[in-house]
Amino acid sequence: MVFSHRMQIFTNIGRYALLMASVFRRPEKWKIFYRLTVLEIDKIGVQSVGIVALLSLFMGAVICIQTAANIDSGWIPVYTIGFTVRQTMILEFSPTIIPVIMAGKVGSNIASEIGTMRISEQIDALDIMGINSANYLILPKLVGALFIFPFLIVMSMVLGITAGAWVGELAGVISMPDYQTGITYDFRPFQVAYSLIKTTVFAFIIVTISAYYGYYTKGGALEVGKASTQAVVYSIVLIMICNLLISQLVLT
């Protein structure tokens, strides 16, 4: 039993690699690929703007208030609040936690969409016509996500930091000039670049893992549900592992 579980991991990795090999091919028709990619940018990106904005505003505000409540010692300068909001948003909340949320929203959607196409033989129908179904279905989602994720993440950073400023002033914990000092203190543009690279990796994980679980669904509606749960769980686990590895590699 333990043995067969270990083998299962290798089977999965092998099948994942094979799937990727057919995803990264030349599309049948560029015009259609382009049209599908634009559709995916809308579905994955534009339709997630609301939830990403909402979460970012609240997180920025909460980090501001939390930090203020925890530094009421005269030794720590008040601009630390702005600094903390900026660092938290830029380094972890926007590039890591937002993708985790997106894994739940977009990942489950991708897995169930492709899984439904599998069990209703729509994927067989594509293959029969001589269309590379993996390439046709997955590449536009991947390119769309890789394109739009950085925009979402930058938006999240900006909104979180802005919300911190508003709430800090409204609650009377930090003045606008102090906040400004905080968010510009020791600012290293490299950290934003680092976050965007991280996010791109996470976008890749979400789309390909979810597509993988959808593409190899067998059975019926129940299995589609299972595939979509697995897609979310494994995407998040991989995001967390990669986050640790990338931080270790880049920041030390």
């Binding site: 439904t116 196409m117 209703s120 033989e121 729509q122 067989d124 129908a125 029969i128």
Partner: peptide, 11 residues
């Protein structure tokens, strides 16, 4: 050309 059991139309 193939006609599938459940029609397999792109929904």
């Amino acid at each position: 050309g193939m006609l599938f059991q459940g029609s397999a139309l792109f929904d």
